[in-house]
Design a protein around this nucleic acid. Structure first.
Lengths: 302, 302
DNA sequence: TCGCCGCGATAGCGTTCCGTTATGGATCTG
DNA sequence: CAGATCCATAACGGAACGCTATCGCGGCGA
């Protein structure tokens, strides 16, 4: 005979109430059933746990020593069950997300704030890392969701949503680029540009687009951080090209931005998850907030 | 459906081996049975614990988080079972004994040493207290066994063995009391005596015996500790009367002792336990050593 | 002192649960 | 494309469990 949680619960109840009859009614069980359960437990442990006669019930010394151990284990398991059921019932939980820094600083905080307004006990862990790290974190299941740039062709990953992150040109109010009908690569090539550092994915897109068009950008400056590039634009060093998702393009009140009407200046943004894995309920729910936010962000070209 | 240890074990095995088939053979179970058990557990927790398809099995995030908790609980319960079974199999255990100081210093250490020679993993807790405290400790089940003096007429207590503790007279080698055929109260009344303090149970017996005989002892000195009384005898202050069970009567090489042949100078020594309680296996076993030791000690009058 | 009452133990029976074999569907492999 | 492998499902048979009924024992009141 094997140890069984039901038997343990029975023993704890009887030991506590010091009565088979009362414990039985508490457990919604007949008294003979309890007698048998206690006997089974005692057989499993090969020890007498309760000294009992028709007049009184009391735990033996071994029973007294085992009681707190059993109680602790039961409490522990019960809280596991309750917590896990709560988790499933979407009452609380933690969503772990890896996202590109622009997304992590931009639409993600808004989406999280909005979601938490409706689900106060949900918590979030956000990792802002470059596209490649996003893929790795999702693949290793260190995060539930990932927002990354570029095409995703990994069979281990599922694309839950995709949107186009359009690069924007950022310019000082009154700059001639604000007056043209559509911002094209040709138009950009006319002006000195503040470009992102060669290491960045934004720069990679810009370079590729210029190469494809057979043109060369007029480089005024290079910057590693978007905020620096914006500062340079404000100072009149030139225009800069930043993802529409980046908050920095709206950081300066006297700067304006416009989407660049050029397919090569847009790159896919993918919301991904590990393929073949059940998404935690909390993450599943958060999708309802995040997917529309992604679509809205990139549809308006804001 | 309720949480069941078998299901938990099943989950831990499958999660560890990442295979239903292998876990099933490990658990001596059919694979479909395991499938059902995992489903039951998942239903109980209302959460998916394992992501599985025909090609691979991997715990979900929730499953991964629950795994260490389950493992700890299982290990804990398993060790409880093993320890308790060991206890029952008399392979180890602790015996708790309350005994009169004379017994605790005298025959008890020998009995324990002898018992531990045969059962090395048994351990002992000995409390040396006065008769009344012995009764209380046994009644409150703070000890398994008690060795006390006097008659025991408590329905809460069971007398497992009884013996007579004969008071001995202790005298210097060559003292005339060593020459008489039998040591009687009359003979003792002839000599100055070193008596125990009035608080002690030994003194109570001595006083009662002299009162009953209508005699008065010649009191040379009083001592609280038996060792002190023995020292006084060695110094020639008189004879003293000590329990035969007391080690002190043999502490001085040039002192002799003889039992007093007087019923009133003998008091019962009882080995007791709580009535209606199952004795722990270790204590039960120790009785096999202690009872003969008690009988031997008091039969020889040593 | 006798009979009643309350409590735990036991017996017999019915149901529920669980594990087994057989089989299906999906996926990787040669 | 056929075979092998692995998990899921279905149907069946047996074991386990809980229930009702009853017994034995000890305390208590008449």
């Amino acid at each position: 005979m094997d140890l069984n949680l039901r038997h343990v619960r029975a023993f704890v109840s009887v030991a506590h109430l010091r009565s088979f009859t009362r414990a039985a009614s508490l457990l919604n069980l007949s008294q003979p059933a309890l007698t048998v359960q206690i006997r089974r437990l005692e057989e499993a442990l090969a020890v007498r746990l309760l000294d009992r006669n028709s007049r009184s019930v009391a735990p033996t010394r071994v029973g007294r020593e085992l009681l707190p151990v059993f109680q602790r284990v039961l409490r522990e398991l019960d809280s596991v069950v309750v917590d896990t059921r709560d988790l499933a019932a979407r009452r609380h939980g933690t969503v772990r997300i890896a996202a590109l820094p622009s997304v992590a600083a931009g639409l993600l905080p808004d989406a999280i704030a909005s979601f938490r307004a409706a689900h106060p006990r949900m918590s979030f862990v956000v990792k802002d890392v470059i596209a490649e790290r996003v893929l790795a974190l999702v693949r290793r299941e260190e995060v539930d969701l990932g927002v990354t740039g570029g095409e995703v062709r990994d069979p281990d990953l599922t694309v839950l949503a995709r949107a186009a992150d359009t690069l924007h040109v950022v310019y000082p109010e009154g700059h001639p680029i604000g007056a043209v009908a559509t911002v094209t690569l040709e138009a950009l090539a006319e002006h000195p540009l503040v470009l992102m550092d060669a290491e960045t994915s934004v720069r990679a897109v810009v370079d590729a687009a210029f190469v494809a068009a057979g043109r060369l950008p007029v480089t005024a400056c290079e910057a590693t951080y978007m905020m620096t590039a914006v500062g340079m634009v404000r100072a009149g060093l030139g225009l800069t090209i930043l993802p529409g998702s980046a908050r920095e393009i709206r950081a300066e009140p006297d700067l304006r931005s416009r989407p660049i009407s050029e397919a090569s200046f847009s790159r896919p943004v993918c919301l991904i998850a590990k393929a073949g894995r059940t998404l935690p309920a909390a993450a599943e729910d958060f999708l309802g907030e995040l997917v529309p936010a992604l679509e809205a962000e990139f549809a308006t070209g804001a």
